[in-house]
């Protein structure tokens, strides 16, 4: 139980950062990049777009570390752990995962 609250906070922060960044990349970045610019890989927008994915990649590394940490402390089943882990790569799913993890952690802390 020790450290669970901190682990949950870390996970929730990363879930939001990763989720918002992924939503921006998918909802704004993708259409801008592929419908507006087509094959123009050398425009500054392409560079910013690529940097966005690099940033999401590193944020996801932190997300995964935090997610594994909190799900481990919660003694989640392997399937649930994988579900929470993969949520960081599916648009808007990290918000859903965050909701359930928060609910479970709150319930456990109340015991």
């Amino acid at each position: 139980m020790k450290g669970l609250a901190g682990a949950a906070t870390r996970y929730r922060i990363m879930a939001w950062i990763t989720g918002v960044l992924l939503a921006v990349m998918v909802c704004i970045g993708l259409p801008l990049r592929y419908w507006l610019l087509k094959d123009n890989w050398h425009s500054p927008v392409s560079t910013v777009y690529s940097i966005g994915w690099v940033l999401h990649g590193w944020m996801f590394v932190l997300y995964l570390a935090a997610a594994l940490d909190v799900t481990f402390r919660m003694k989640y089943s392997v399937l649930k752990v994988l579900g929470v882990a993969v949520s960081g790569t599916i648009p808007f799913m990290s918000f859903v995962a965050e909701h359930f993890v928060k609910r479970d952690v709150t319930a456990k802390l109340m015991q």
């Binding site: 690529s50 994915w53 690099v54 990649g57 590193w58 996801f60 590394v61």
Partner: peptide
């Protein structure tokens, strides 16, 4: 290609 390079690292 930093994106692919970092993905490999990740």
């Amino acid at each position: 290609p930093l994106q692919n390079f970092f993905y490999a690292l990740q």
